[in-house]
Nucleic acid binder design. Structure first.
Lengths: 106, 106
DNA sequence: ACATAATACATCGTAACACGAGGTATTATG
DNA sequence: CATAATACCTCGTGTTACGATGTATTATGT
């Protein structure tokens, strides 16, 4: 898929992936992969960005003798998803503009 | 609106603006403004990019004693719009993933 | 025991991109 | 003669996605 179209979608996809249950890097990639391609380097960039924006918090926990970094969504993160739903209305109106056929020709 | 979400939409918006009828910079901005905010510097960047990608051609014409650069969509440009329609299906599936409520909790 | 793959994390450099700030020139309005 | 509108263009900057690369552990196969 076009790289540009993915932008803006990636952040909310990651937030969605940790919304119901805390998750960690490797699992997030697996969860969103069926919907959107996402490399590790991109994910960690996004996670860092979302942490800075206080949309998620990080806590380290042991799992099978190995340390994992779990990501937990915050109120701000949940709010971002809600905002996205609002923005979607604008996106849809843009989409309709683009696909609109001008009457009578073509 | 979120800058990231706009990306990928801008190019097709500009293509749509010249699809039915050749247009020029100033008019394109006015035409797409109701749907998506677009500054002059951004538009000219996009027009140059689309020209390089052979999605449009440029021809200069006089209008009221002043020269205007008219942009004309090519086959490739039309094809890009069609591709966008296909990509939209993926975008929709991502959207559904993001807004999907997980059953029973929260 | 050793190689390979999978899991799990992280950083660096690069290219693409949107956009504000700034510039030029003409026509119209007051 | 000043201001606004029309019409074009360029440069620099910050954000971003991602390939390449590196480290370390656990599991699997032979």
């Amino acid at each position: 898929m076009d790289i540009q179209l993915k932008r803006g979608l990636l952040d909310v996809c990651v937030l969605k992936a940790i919304k119901t249950e805390d998750s960690y890097g490797y699992k997030i990639i697996k969860d969103v992969k069926p919907y959107i391609e996402l490399s590790e380097s991109t994910l960690y960039t996004i996670l860092k960005r979302l942490e800075t924006a206080q949309m998620l918090t990080v806590h380290t926990a042991e799992h099978g003798g190995r340390l994992r970094k779990y990501y937990h969504i915050t109120e701000k993160g949940l709010k971002r998803i809600e905002e996205f739903k609002e923005e979607w209305k604008e996106i849809m109106s843009i989409y309709k503009f683009v696909i609109k056929e001008d009457e009578g020709d073509d």
